[in-house]
């Protein structure tokens, strides 16, 4: 035991707690049960240890010890690869796949959360050593609040207005509002689709949003999330029964065609509204320099 033992222990504990807080299993069901979680809690523990140990190392003027953090960085990049590979492999067996953009978003979140753990335990240990444990607790609580805020990105209901729209057929063409979805030839399939299908029109609230919801990855994420939450009327031998999203080229609205097992319209609107906006799909044409010059 020495003067650093308790601060390091404190840093490691709060860092690991931070990782556990960030490791929520929700409707996305990922990571699933025990084993997946243990991997991430263990990695969180390693991250917390690295963050906590960095402070005494600097105080002892062992500056080279900071190079350890570079090892941590490559280690956590590996975490991102691991998540990406696992999810891509699993995606082939989903009835409605997540899509690469969504997977990349999840993988990035896993990597960045480990860095957040490092920062949390670094700051906590630092506050403990420089000031005292009360300040350290205070700083930790601050970190937890920031982490919670960072965790929840924006959702679709902030970007679009969602309206229910009855699907209909014009000859073999399936339409949601005036947006063409696909060609279904067999009357039998058409009947099934009329029975189970639901249509929604998502109208973007401004120009930036148009390109965000046009992103194919974002659209796939909408389909995946709604299929997870509402169920999907589909099986491996029925390629015609596939939820799809198509775009109205004139005004950037998108027509969402779903085949939910739960036929509750309000619930569906709620679910679509809470689909996360993928970081990689966000576009900000209004921020471009050229546009501002013209205004």
């Amino acid at each position: 035991m020495n003067e650093y033992s308790f601060p390091i222990l404190f840093g490691v504990v709060v860092g690991t707690i931070a990782r556990i807080i960030m490791l929520r299993t929700d409707y996305r069901q990922y990571p699933t049960y025990l084993h997946g979680k243990i991997i991430h809690v263990a990695l969180g523990f390693i991250a917390a240890s690295l963050g906590a140990v960095a402070v005494p190392a600097i105080m002892e003027k062992e500056f080279t010890a900071v190079t350890f953090l570079t090892i941590a960085a490559s280690q956590f990049r590996e975490v991102r690869n691991m998540e990406r590979n696992t999810l891509t492999e699993l995606d082939r067996y989903e009835l409605v796949p997540r899509g690469n953009t969504y997977i990349e978003g999840i993988a990035i979140a896993f990597e960045s959360r480990n860095y957040l753990v490092i920062f949390t335990s670094f700051l906590a240990t630092f506050a403990y050593l420089v000031l005292n444990i009360y300040f350290a607790v205070f700083i930790t609580l601050g970190c937890f609040i920031i982490i919670n805020r960072l965790m929840s990105g924006s959702t679709l209901k902030e970007l679009v207005t969602i309206e229910y729209s009855q699907i209909h057929f014009e000859k073999a063409g399936l339409y949601v509002d005036n947006i063409y979805i696909m060609n279904i030839g067999l009357p039998e399939r058409q009947k099934e689709i009329m029975e189970y299908g639901m249509g929604f029109v998502l109208t973007p609230i401004n120009f930036d949003v148009r390109s965000t919801i046009a992103n194919l990855g974002q659209r796939q994420a909408i389909l995946h999330d709604t299929s997870v939450s509402l169920g999907v009327f589909r099986d491996s031998g029925t390629p015609a029964l596939v939820p799809l999203i198509k775009r109205d080229l004139n005004d950037g609205r998108i027509g969402v065609f779903l085949l939910p097992q739960n036929q509750d319209v309000n619930r569906a609107i709620e679910v679509i509204g809470s689909v996360p906006v993928l970081e990689n799909a966000i576009r900000m044409p209004s921020e471009s320099k050229n546009k501002n010059k013209n205004e």
Partner: peptide
């Protein structure tokens, strides 16, 4: 035609699209 198309759709794991009243692919 509809019966054949429905069968082939299931067998071939493809989608039956209607091009006109007298033709499915």
């Amino acid at each position: 035609m509809e019966r054949t198309a429905a069968n082939l759709e299931a067998i071939l794991d493809g989608i039956a699209h209607g091009l006109s009243k007298e033709m499915y692919i």
